[in-house]
């Protein structure tokens, strides 16, 4: 079964199987040495640039800023949740996410 993935409203949402599931304005903890120098980036999600899937895992590239060090830019692929039996479950806010 294919999963339908979209970025909507100029980067405000990720739509997964036609449901608006993931939204901007959250803070995500990020293990992303290629994004900034912090051990863990504290990323404010400002805009979704792209969405993809790797197995059951939904991933996104995000425009945002690390509020700890001020680095701004577009991240690598960050996991946002997974699809199981056709249902999407978003990772908890406190999850540390590793970008690739």
């Amino acid at each position: 079964m294919t999963t339908r993935l979209r970025v909507l409203d100029d980067g405000a949402w990720l739509s997964i199987d036609d449901t608006r599931e993931v939204r901007v304005s959250e803070l995500w903890r990020l293990d992303a040495p290629d994004f900034c120098g912090c051990d863990l980036a504290d990323l404010i999600v400002e805009n979704f640039q792209a969405v993809g899937i790797d197995g059951a895992r939904i991933e996104a590239r995000v425009h945002g800023q690390c509020i700890a060090c001020g680095t701004t830019g577009v991240t690598g692929w960050i996991p946002v949740g997974r699809v199981h039996d056709g249902e999407f479950a978003e990772f908890d806010r406190s999850t540390v996410r590793r970008s690739r």
């Binding site: 409203d9 100029d10 980067g11 405000a12 949402w13 939204r23 901007v24 304005s25 404010i44 400002e46 805009n47």
Partner: peptide
């Protein structure tokens, strides 16, 4: 802003 707008941060 956040009252109605999906892009908003504050």
């Amino acid at each position: 802003g956040t009252e109605y707008c999906s892009l908003s941060i504050v």
